[in-house]
Design a binder for these strands. Sequence first.
DNA 1: CTGTTAGCGCTTTCAG
DNA 2: CTGAAAGCGCTAACAG
Lengths: 348, 348
Amino acid sequence: MASVNGGGRRVTLREVARAARVSPSTVSRALAGNPRISAATRARVQEAMERLGYHPNAIARSLVTRSSRTLGVVLYRPADQAFSHPFFAEALRGVARVAQAEGYSLLVTTADTYEAEAEQCLAMLRERRADGAVLLASRNPDPLIDELVRQRFPFVVLGRVDANLAVYWVNNDNVQAAALAVGYLAELGHRRIGLIGGRRELTVTQDRLEGFRLTLQELGLEVRAEWMQFGEFSWEEGYRSGRTLLQSHDRPTAIVAMDDVLAAGAMRAARELDLRVPEDVSVIGFNDDPMAQLLSPPLTTVRIPARELGEAAARQLIERLSGRLPPVRHVILPVQLVVRGSTGPAGP
Amino acid sequence: MASVNGGGRRVTLREVARAARVSPSTVSRALAGNPRISAATRARVQEAMERLGYHPNAIARSLVTRSSRTLGVVLYRPADQAFSHPFFAEALRGVARVAQAEGYSLLVTTADTYEAEAEQCLAMLRERRADGAVLLASRNPDPLIDELVRQRFPFVVLGRVDANLAVYWVNNDNVQAAALAVGYLAELGHRRIGLIGGRRELTVTQDRLEGFRLTLQELGLEVRAEWMQFGEFSWEEGYRSGRTLLQSHDRPTAIVAMDDVLAAGAMRAARELDLRVPEDVSVIGFNDDPMAQLLSPPLTTVRIPARELGEAAARQLIERLSGRLPPVRHVILPVQLVVRGSTGPAGP
DNA sequence: CTGTTAGCGCTTTCAG
DNA sequence: CTGAAAGCGCTAACAG
């Protein structure tokens, strides 16, 4: 952490050049590690840089290279709780890790509405603040994605995208993930299975819903509208939905919650209604948030590799930016059923 | 989301000027809302900008204004779990909200070690990628803070800072917060009180530890080294520490965990050892993470206003950057005891 | 191997 | 009220 220049004026490349008695371009080359430069001059330049406490101005460099080496991250936050949601936090961590390893910075945008979010994301790219973007979710339809495609901005989506669009995305098979959950509950003997879902415009909700319905139908089980509730990905919504499902006369014996946070809310609702988990009602979540094992009973869940998804997204985006178009445009990561204590055999 | 220019080349201010038959400076003035410009020309320029789909290049602007209108956020992450920790997530959300409202972007850095974190933070500022930084935690001693002061970079710390340094910070009174927790447990009749703390180099740990000890001494209660455990702010550490404390022969009847995540781990340890909470052991946490109310029993905790702290930090930094030095350099936000089910009277 | 010459796209005096 | 000129700090041909 050695430093020299004490606060005020910054040292410029020009001054280093003067001090080292070379031209600016030579300093620039030394900076870039250009091999076409003699060991002697390189040393002189190095010495001058250190003596003067020089640090290159990234803004100036960006202006000429037309690259900020910055990745924009867009958090869709319909409920104004994006950072706090464990899934997004983990995904973000994955993005951050890869970005950092590749020498990229992260510019994070947030907004209160989808429209504002979209506008900010576009502004970030148009104004050259970021070289590309990773969208931490997708909806269907998604005007932002259409616009990004039209403007030919580089971006990667964490989620599903209309197959007609030539867009990079990373995802897990959410249809199959939901099938896994339903299949497991059916194996345990459950025949009345309820659902607590996220916002219907999100592709993740749509896909898991499809997996849910298809599997119920395949197994010859009932798909009842009043056993399905949708809302924000918050525990309050899970709680509200849980109460609704569990208070109905003909209540389900098992609940598939599309998110561990929703599942936690549902479990709380069950407790308040004096229903035991899993004896009276089984609950299964998605994600395998760290919190899942801390609930009592510990939550059975379909593990979604959030961090890995974020890492894969960042990696794809960076490869795309560096011109190496990866051979595949899509990455699908596997999910895994994690059985814990919140699920059990159906009652008689 | 209207757009014209289709992907490739970007429209520059110069081209707008040409199209509107004015000079570049006039376009620049129109952009800045400069009043010294006639309504007619302004309209012509506006029209040209829209017709060509012009968007100013933030990088070029930054180069000349010497400001990126970007705030750097530094996440200290000794345990490589910063994003995922509810407290940091909430604080970050507060920072993001204010930044966005004031037209600032957020550049987030992460690293695996404290040293790397510090280096990246300095680089961010030296290279002019960010105008200032908010540090989401503080340690004592903290070489990064010393260096930032020496380099006269604008920054705000969320935490306590050596009183000799003229540094902006926002914090809560952690000594008092811990006193609140211990006082409450003592009121319930507990006389053997254990502690699960975070890393000892963090000021938050140091302050809460001081409040813990002082209050025990004032109340004439024992301060036993073997009743105090320290580690990362992770539930695994809370679990490990909880087991250690609760397995000792002469175990405490109450535990102060310096963080809800630690408390959750401790409660899990209690459950595994067949100790009931709160009948056999009371547990109290800090923060009031959303998760706190989902645990069973719901967690008693000292609420720390994480989001408000983040907001205050961002606000201070922005005021500092805009030259309006706020009258106070420090902000202290109040905490609040939230009593739930994890604490109860001491056994006989 | 090194220097010279032009900019990157914008803002900002300074004249008019 | 508007334009001309001069950079912000750096990189990148193109010569030598």
